[in-house]
Each structure stands twice: as structure tokens, then as C-alpha cells.
Write a protein that binds this DNA or RNA. Structure first.
Lengths: 213, 213, 213, 213
DNA sequence: AATGAATGAGGGTTCATTCAT
DNA sequence: AATGAATGAACCCTCATTCAT
């Protein structure tokens, strides 16, 4: 019985995820407004009414999708953090930077979803929760950066004059903008080299952080 | 008669703008999807049907607001450019940066509109036009920056090793990102100091660009 | 212009009534729950969406139907009252009674609607308003009766021992009950003679009211 | 084995009643339309699907509650009848009257259910069965009254001129109307005194029935 | 040119019912 | 016998759009 219940719970969780993934695919492809609950059910391979067994409504499903995304990002950020070997501050920044780049590169098709999320922070009923979640996410990733830079300052590698707290949000946000611009260039001829931009920017930042001789 | 026609044309332009402004206000406040054509007409102080005399439909009106926004941005960018006095490259960057900051600070309430534009870029029927417009806008602003930096390199102020073309999109995008994060913090207690972040970031960039002794 | 506006108002009022009548017919025939807004629009000969130009929703339309009914009843009661000639109390009661009977007889097909109203009084969101309206309606009709009886007592025709205020609600209610039972018998073989029942009952009441010699 | 079967039958009967009671409570509280099968199952403390082991569907369950109600009423009426001592006709009417009043007073919360039943006689698929059941119920109760009055006429207590068959339905119906009006007044300040109205009306009727000296 | 009454396609949601377990 | 996950028909309502005035 215990097993059975566990399986049921597992299956329920599985179906919930099924729906979330179907929603993510369609929200990314057509946008939230133009995706109907019927579309999502079809994509998930279930009946129209079934969706409502797992989510109260379209808004809540959207929010669940958002939460899935935030969790995913936090996991990605945490993972990268633990991978940081005891190298120089510059190296750490490069590794971290690269790891973010990797996770960006794997999910191009979901990028429009992030735009939907941003837009929703303005108009959704979950607006406050979403704002907070985004803020927290940025803070969490930013804190990693702050730690790296502080360490670098202590080690006499980075310049103590830098106003870390102010500058970090800008650095963290670069990833967003790179994804955004990659998206704007997607499908056009004049390609945007995400990787090159990322690396050059990282170099520039490091040059700016380093203590002047 | 000539005058009359001219007046009519003028009035039409005026009414068109009236509608665009009304749309912008509401799109920013409630989002595109949740704003009805009736709402817009009401806000513009005209009849529901009149909107269709000036715009083919909601999508086109949305696109018109987008175009208005892009034009506005381009004008702002151009304006700043002409204001650049013959100072050092670092000074120019600071002036340019400040001018962007000023235009950001003046239009907080319209910031969600940009989010709508970004989101629409993914799902709108005008998706390709919008992508292109955004790309062009970034390019145009970027070009100003590229020019400044190139000039700085020629003047032996900035380091020629910098891969300018790759790094500029990231720098330009950061301004968006700062606006975005300011928006996420809006309404919460832990305020985000847009100005400080912007200035610190500009400093960092300049430090990175400067030729090492 | 005044005329035009007036006409428009008139037409709107007319369309509102059109919808109310269509709703009444269908609510009476199929009940509130089984009548769809589409049914009503069709019956009224208008588009589905048009209904919502005149009524906020199905519930409000139902309530409007109820209000129409209450107004109609009050008018009927008032009318009868003014028709009462300066006859004996017994005669007045007979006239009043007959007038109620007449209005009952003319609207058999709408009788189920009253049942819907009663039922809705329990479960509708307008429950309190409906309760009050019914109470007021009964009171208003009852008051006519109270006046007649009081006059009869003053004229030494009716027995002063009668507890008028207590008994009148019962008498007034009997008319409902007669309609109800007529409805139960409708369509069956063993006909229910509403008229005879009404008259016999009226006689009985009068016998009870009259002063004993 | 026989016992076991009997127990199962007994349990089935018990569960059937459980469901019926649950349905009655909810139909009375929220109305038929607003009560879901899931609500009923929950209230009955059983699974959603189980209801369908005992009743074919929502309509049939509703009809079962109706039948339960009718049986209950008939039992109540029969009971009162046997309690009638060999008193005067007037006394019998008073006793009967009081006994109905008692059963009314004990079941205020279920009164809306009767309204649902009435409404359903118009729109339910069981409409004809329900009409007949109501007719029979009224007839059965009426017959008791007819018997009492006939006896009274034979005993020279009541006036032979009374058209008994016509007048009895009106008298019987009074109980409905008293319940109805009590329901309309429920929750308001200007209380309706059910008992007083009932007694005064009974008095009036008896005065009307009594032979004039 | 300006209007707003009328429209109906479209979509979110509910819920009675089924059926595999 | 008991269950509750799954289903899709049905329905309320919104709103972009049209068109007669």
C-alpha cells in the first residue's frame, strides 16, 4: 500500500510536470495569451478537464511554470558555485561566467518564456510574488559574485575601491541582456555571437576589477 | 481649403497620438492582453469605433505604440550623441551613460511597456518587424559607443586589445538590465539604487577600457 | 436630437424588455438552470453577446425578470384596490379575490416562473433582495386586505374579535397555494377547479369574518 | 449467509440514506443546481464514484430525496390522523392543525428544499412523477380534512352548505404559505409569527365552518 | 469623421459521469 | 463494493471588430 501510494504520488507529480512542460513549450512558442488551456492539454496528451485537477486555472499554471523556471535557475546557479575550484578571482569569474553561458545556450527555445515572465511581473495577479522571486534570484546569483570579488580584494587581486554591491547587479544582468539580444538576432543573417560577447565582457569586467599596478 | 486640409491632417495626427498615448498608458499599467480597445477609447476620450478609423486593429495599434517608443529612444540616443563635447573618452562615456540614466529615470511608469514589447517580440504577428527594430535600436546606440571607444583607442586613451564589437552589445544591454532590476525592486523595501549602480558600473567599464600603464 | 435620444432610450428599453420576456418564457419552460444565455438570445432574436450589453450576467438578468414580476404584481394589486366600489366589506373581499383570480388565470404559463423565484430566494446571490421583495409584496397586498377588514369591523359588519394582522398573511398566501395546486393538476385528468376553489374559500373566509348574530 | 446478505442489504439501505440525507442538507443549503455530486459525496463521507453505485445520476438522486420527503410527509399526516381523539370537529381541526404546525416548526432548515421540489416540478425530467406525487400528497392530507368536516356536518356541528371539496385544498395549502412566508421573514427584524397566524387562521376557518345559529 | 450598438468567435472553467483498479 | 483520476460536453462571458447612422 505504501508503495502504491508512493507511486500514485509519483505519477501525479509526473503528470503535473507533463502539464508544466507542455505549458512552457507553448507559452514560449505562442505567448501566454495566445495559448489556450485546450492547447496545453493536447500538447500534454491529456483531456482538457484534467489540467484543472492539477492546477486551479490558467494563471496558476503560468505561475507554476514560473516557479519551475526559478527553481531551475537557482539549481543551475548553485551547481556552478560548488564547481568553483580554488583558483584566482579572475579564474573564478570566468568559470562562473562560462557556466551561466552554458545554461543559456542549452535553452534558446525557452528564452521567450523569460520575456513572458518579465512581462507578467507587470500585469499578472502574481505580480508581487514574481517580482520578489526575480529579486531573490538575482540576489542569490549576485551574492556568489559578491563573495568572489570580496575574496579577490582580500587576496589583493581586486581593487578595494570598487563599489561591489552597486556593480554586481549590472554584471549579473548582462546575462539577461545577452540572451535577449541573441533572441533579437535569432533568425536573421547578422548573427550575434553570444559566446564572444560574453567572454569579451567578462574580460572587460576583470580588467576593471583588477588592482592597478 | 489648403489650410483646412492641413488642419485636418494635423488633427488626425493629433488624434492618432492621443490614441497611442492612451494605449501606452494602459498597456504599461495592465498589460496588452488585459487592456481592451474600449478601455483605450475611453482613456483617449473618444468613441469605441473611432479607434478603428486610425488603426486597423489592436495588434496594429500595439505596433504603433512600439514604433513610437522606438522612435523616441532613437531620438534620445541621437540627442545625447550631439551633446557630447570634445572631452576625453572616459568623460564621453560618463556623459552618455548619464543621459541614458536620465531618460530611464523619467519614465519609470512606462517601463512595463518595454517588457510588453519584449514579450510581444516573441508572439506578436509583428514579431519579425519588432525583432528587427530592437536589433536596429541596439545597433544604433551601440554604434555611438563604438565610435566613442574607437576614438579613445586612437587617442591612446583606451586599450586596443579590447574586442569592441563584441563587448559593446553587453554594455549597452546592461542599461536595460538596470531598468529591469529597478522594476523588480519597485514597491519593495530594499530599494535598488539605480543611479549608484549605473555610475559604479560605468566606472568599472572605464577602468576596464583604459590602457594599462 | 432630443427626440432621437428619446427614441434610442425607448428602443433600448424595448430591447431590455425583449430580453426579459424571452428569459421569462424560457425560465418558465425549462427552469433557470437549464436555460442557457444562448437560448435566451435566440428566443429574443438577438446575438449572444448583445444580452450582456443590457444585463451584467445571467444572475442579474434573472433578478431583472424577478423585478419585472414583482412590479407587475404590485400594479395588479394596486389596480384592484382602486376598483373597489363603496360596497359592503364582503363584496369588497369578493371583488378583490376575483381580481386576483383573474390575474392568476391569465398567466398560467408563467406560473413555474414563480416557483423558480421562490427557489431562487433560497440559493440566489440576490437572496436577501428577493426575500425582502417578496415580503414587501405580501405586505402590500395584505395591507389592502387589512384595510378592507378594518373598515368592515368599524361598519359593524365583521367581528372585532378577529386577530386581523395574524390572519391576513394566511389568507393572502392561500392565493399562491391555489395557483400552486392548479399547477400540480395541470396536464392531469382530475382537473382542479381553481375558480370554484377560490370562490368557496372566499365564502368561507367571509363567513368566518362576519359578526355572529 | 442469509444474515450476511441481510446485513449487506441493510448497509446498502443505510448508505443510500446517508447519501440522501447529505443531498438534502446541501440541496436545502445551496440549491440543487449549485450542489455538485462531489459535494454530496464529501458530505456523505464516501467516495465520489460511490454515489453512482446507489443512484443512476444527479437527477435520480434528487428524485430520491423528493420521494423521501413525500414519504416523510405522508407518515406525518397519517400519524396525526390516528392521534385524533373523539372530540368535536372544531377540536379535531385544531389538533390536526397544531400537529402540522409542529412538523413545520421542526424543519425550518429544510424548507428551501421544498421550494426546490416545487421548482423542479416545472423543469425536472421527473416533472410528471413529481406533479403526481404532490397532487397525491395534497389529496391524502385533504382527505383527512374532508373526513373531519363531513363528520362535523353529520354531527350538526358544521354547516352543510359548505362546498367541502373546493374549500379543502385552500385550507391545506395554507400550511405551505405559512412556511413560505416564515422563510421570507427569516433573518429579518420584523418577525413573522408562524404559530399565531396558524392559530388565528384555524379559528377563522372554524368560525366559517360552524353552523350559524 | 465619429459613434456605439450589435455581434459571435473563442476560451476559461465546471462538473456529471465513467472506468480501471 | 468502493474509489477518484480522467474526461469532454456544456456554458458563461469577454471583447475585437463591424456597420448603420
Amino acid at each position: 500500500m505504501g508503495r502504491k501510494n508512493k507511486n500514485m504520488a509519483f505519477n501525479q507529480e509526473k503528470k503535473k510536470d507533463q502539464i508544466i512542460f507542455a505549458a512552457m513549450i507553448l507559452f514560449a512558442k505562442k505567448g501566454f495569451a495566445k495559448t489556450s488551456m485546450a492547447d496545453i492539454a493536447k500538447e500534454a496528451g491529456i483531456g482538457k478537464g484534467t489540467t484543472y485537477e492539477y492546477f486551479k486555472g490558467k494563471d496558476q499554471l503560468f505561475f507554476a511554470t514560473f516557479q519551475w523556471f526559478v527553481d531551475h535557475c537557482e539549481k543551475a546557479a548553485t551547481l556552478s558555485f560548488t564547481e568553483l575550484a580554488p583558483k584566482s578571482g579572475a579564474e573564478k569569474i570566468r568559470v562562473f561566467s562560462q557556466s551561466i553561458l552554458n545554461s543559456l545556450k542549452g535553452s534558446e527555445e525557452f528564452y521567450p518564456l523569460v520575456l513572458e515572465f518579465w512581462a507578467a511581473t507587470a500585469s499578472s495577479r502574481y505580480r508581487d510574488k514574481m517580482k520578489k522571486a526575480f529579486k531573490d534570484l538575482y540576489k542569490r546569483i549576485g551574492d556568489v559574485f559578491v563573495a568572489i570579488i570580496n575574496e579577490g580584494i582580500e587576496n589583493n587581486e581586486f581593487d578595494p575601491e570598487i563599489d561591489i554591491d552597486s556593480v554586481v547587479p549590472a554584471i549579473v544582468g548582462v546575462w539577461d541582456t545577452i540572451g535577449l539580444q541573441a533572441w533579437f538576432h535569432d533568425g536573421s543573417n547578422d548573427e550575434f555571437n553570444m559566446e564572444k560577447t560574453m567572454l569579451s565582457f567578462t574580460d572587460l569586467i576583470i580588467r576593471g576589477l583588477l588592482k592597478k599596478q
